[in-house]
Design a protein around this nucleic acid. Structure first.
Lengths: 356, 356
DNA sequence: TTGCACCATTGCAACGATGCACCAAACTAG
DNA sequence: CTAGTTTGGTGCATCGTTGCAATGGTGCAA
């Protein structure tokens, strides 16, 4: 059906071994003219090496795995694109999988990727425990945990890459406090994940700086109903979460004047909820998001948010993954957490606190 | 490194062939107890068949390819998720690739997928000519063209799946005309793709129904600067396109009172542009989108748009792909276009035409 | 008892690429 | 002129799985 290395060899009048040598850059061991004849034959026949055969023989694969919660969330889509770009440049391909934040699916995908010869995976899962994928790591899978920081019990070689979430919400919250807001809320969703807990810590740290206590702020972590992990559609529930939160928070006797959202999707939901309640976001109510997805700038009003340095994070993830794969067992891997610095992007969804 | 079929065979006290037979459902030819012993051994050792080896031997692959313009556009992210769900249920996996609407990347990806043993791909490309991937189809690749309709010169077996774009914009435009708008604009971006041309036809058809001519409407197709294909970042330029279009159109002497956008991302850009110009969308200016992405409902104001039946389209794409793969050469393939019916979702970004 | 059909099970040769070990020829040194 | 080295290239076993052809054992009819 397809052209094989033997046909190329015959066409060029050499042995398959020689063609293989050309293919694998061992061309210093042959006459330039031989190499040329082989390359011509390859071009003439339109030959491409058979991936599976190659992989079977070498055990290596030119592909990486990327497991994200859901590509329907533009944040993950954007991250995927950047990782793909970095990988492509180095000759790797990326296989993308949606876990829907389900640990069982995460494990199944990793098992399948492993069986397919993939030896390096970026797992975007902020679960505190990585127990469910530990066996794979022990078998030799290079794993980069994205959007997560190191936890006790992690395998020693595990590299975690994340934005500094605590700093992020601290920036956001301080911004609100500086604008004079004193009744704040954090809409977080379930706090099962390490990054959300870090975001909570940043929120609380900023409050403390300004001499406020937990009593001055409310943390809206939703009900089981709103826990994205409980649904099939993962990240698509964030907007609903935000909308419900806004509805509830704004209906209380002493509603907050500013809300920190756990991410931009949630913030957009909050804005929609505020609009439902007849409030003007940016004057009556301030809202800060987190991520800086493409649409943050297009929202009405444009969303003030904490930007994750996605390109840099994707580059870092790829670099560590590649190093891990190419080290491949021999040589002790470092492991630990890499925290990148977020940046506050002020737009118009935040403004001075309204007069009391 | 990993468990092989030989180890399983040894553990169960049978030959590798028998294990293979169990694995491939040829269990009617063996004693139930043998089968049981093998299954126990598989479970005990945690055996998973090696994908590449299997593929090398059989030529078959349990993976499908999906090439989308850019997962950073939530529409494609959502489509990818639905296709993945359909495929997963049937035991297939999906490999996702971003073409950035670049024909060369489309071809490269298909070549690579083919070399990796993938025999079926959904290509989301609305280019009129599929010339660049024709050689692959001739070699036996089953190709489903998504977001495109059949064109002269297509390979006879090609299945095209798309929403009925003309009907979609016709619904949208008629809605605006019924609201009393008489000065309309279509913001289309470059008209190189078949689906955009179909959307233009629908727009014109609706105008005609109401006795209007091309003189009453303006088609803003942008400049080369705004052509997403000219950029690296594909679909991320749609919002900019919309924003520029709004700025230009609203600055003319006789600005349109209603705008049909080529898609939701573009519509969100138009809304942002209208806001920049101090207009109230839904009263001063009506805007209709196309796609119904998750965020359409969250926009301010919520976006009136033409919904694409994504789950149904994904199911159809998978069903045809599977049929094509499993037919695999023998048996004449049908080929043609499948057009699914869109649906107008009225929200608040459209309203009665303002008094002249 | 022989011949034959039938059965569960197994041996073995692939699939396509790789890379080590080897080889023949050409050169160099003594 | 021989022994040793370098150069340029090839032979072959191998990766893990598959599925056809073949195996030997059993039961039954003739």
């Amino acid at each position: 059906m397809s052209v094989t290395i033997h046909q190329v060899a015959a066409e060029a009048g050499v042995s398959p071994s020689t063609v293989s040598n050309v293919l694998n850059g061992r061309s210093e061991r042959m006459l330039p003219q031989t190499r040329e004849r082989v390359e011509e034959a390859i071009a003439r026949l339109g030959y491409r090496p058979n991936g599976p055969a190659r992989q079977l023989r070498t055990g290596r694969s030119q592909a990486l795995g990327l497991v994200v919660p859901s590509v329907a969330n533009p944040f993950w889509g954007t991250f995927a694109r950047h990782l793909e770009a970095a990988a492509l440049q180095a000759g790797y391909r990326v296989l993308l999988c949606n876990s829907e934040r389900d640990p069982a699916r995460e494990r199944d995908y990793l098992e399948e990727l492993w069986a397919d010869g993939i030896r390096g995976v970026v797992l975007c899962s902020s679960l505190p425990s990585l127990e469910h994928v530990l066996p794979l790591v022990e078998r030799g899978l290079t794993l980069i945990a994205f959007d997560r920081t190191a936890q006790a019990g992690d395998p020693p070689s595990l590299v975690n890459i994340s934005v500094d979430n605590a700093v992020g919400t601290e920036l956001a919250t301080r911004h609100l406090l500086q604008l004079g807001h004193r009744r704040l809320a954090l809409v977080s969703g379930s706090l099962h994940s390490v990054n959300r807990r870090a975001r909570l810590r940043g929120f609380e740290a900023a409050l403390e700086e300004f001499g406020l206590t937990a009593a001055d702020a409310v943390v809206w972590s939703g009900t089981a109903d709103h826990d994205p992990a409980a649904h099939g559609y993962g990240d698509l529930d964030f907007p609903d979460l935000g909308r419900s939160a806004a509805r509830e928070l704004l209906a209380t006797g002493r509603p907050p004047t500013a809300i920190v959202a756990i991410n931009d999707m949630c913030a957009l939901g909050i804005i929609a909820g505020a609009r439902d309640a007849g409030l003007q976001v940016g004057t009556d109510l301030s809202v800060v998001g987190f991520d800086d997805i493409v649409l943050a700038d297009l929202a009405t009003p444009p969303l003030t948010t904490v930007r994750q340095p996605v390109p840099a994070m994707a580059d870092a993830a790829f670099a560590h993954l590649r190093a891990g794969i190419e080290r491949a067992g021999n040589g002790g891997a470092p492991g630990g957490s890499l925290l990148l610095r977020p940046e506050l992007v002020v737009r118009s969804s935040t403004g001075p606190a309204p007069a009391p």
